[in-house]
Amino acid sequence: MDASTEFENGQAKFDAIIAADEKIEPRDWMPDGYRKTVIRQMAQHAHSEVIGMQPEANWILRAPTLLRKAILIAKVQDEAGHGLYLYSATETLGVSRDELVGLLHEGKQKYSSIFNYPALSWADMGAIGWLVDGAAIVNQIVLQGTSYGPYSRAMVKICKEESFHARQGYSIMMALAEGSDEQKAMCQDALNRWWWPALMMFGPHDSESAHTAESMAWKIKRKTNDELRQMFIDQTVPQAHYLGMTIPDPDLVFDEETGHWTIGEIDWDEFWATIKGDGRLNRERITHKVKAWDEGRWVRDAATAYAAKQKMKPDKSA
């Protein structure tokens, strides 16, 4: 079989799998563009989990009770686990975790811009769980139907844990909303600061999104940015009202005809600035990550050297 026939057969099989809504598996032939897009998206997802540990780790030490502290530790630990799991799933496409981490450190791959916003009060632990994890879940539930098998299966596993994250966030907000005036103000302030960035997590409008059309055709994405954003808005606005809080958007109205909430304009200048590296904490987040990696080098070297010495030793079991 010559190369062009192999390509045609591969492409035909790939198209058939996509058309039948079945999964592409690591050994299947896939177009280079598909492979690159899935790697980019999965790596970005893995990086987001890992960078996302930082704003919450910042509050573990100051958590108000041991139970809240333990829950927050468990959540941050889940994020490390999700990162690890997603890196492994990405490795099925022929890249190594070290390569991907290198690209993150060099600024050549991105992570979710939401983590470039600072966590300034205890209420932010509530807002992050409720809004940030809430937005992530909307996205990830749909991604369970993504066409790349290992990614789809990773999403099934991760979604189960994420719903606990969102619930613990809402529970923090609930305690504050029922508390003192200061606590209520803290709750509202966190909502004010996290609402718009959470909406930006879904990316630019469909008309502005570079990858949407192709990703939809390949069934990597199953719903567009605007569709996902609307799902999140519709589920979250009533939750904010239940807390007795105000959504920081004077243009927010409920459209009786469509049954959806309509929002005011998102600040796209802020969105693009943050994506391009000029958000509040872009530099700090990467610096923290690179510093930990560099400071851990001697430990990784020691583990490697030890393993090599063990190989050189005569087999103890013999």
């Binding site: 780790a57 686990g81 851990g296």
Partner: peptide, 24 residues
């Protein structure tokens, strides 16, 4: 807990999270 997100490897961040949770 001070060390969480600062470990030499992601696996170790997980392990230290476990230790922290046990002690707390």
């Amino acid at each position: 807990a001070e060390y969480i997100s600062r470990a030499p490897e992601l696996e170790e961040d997980l392990a230290i999270g476990n230790l922290t949770l046990d002690h707390i």
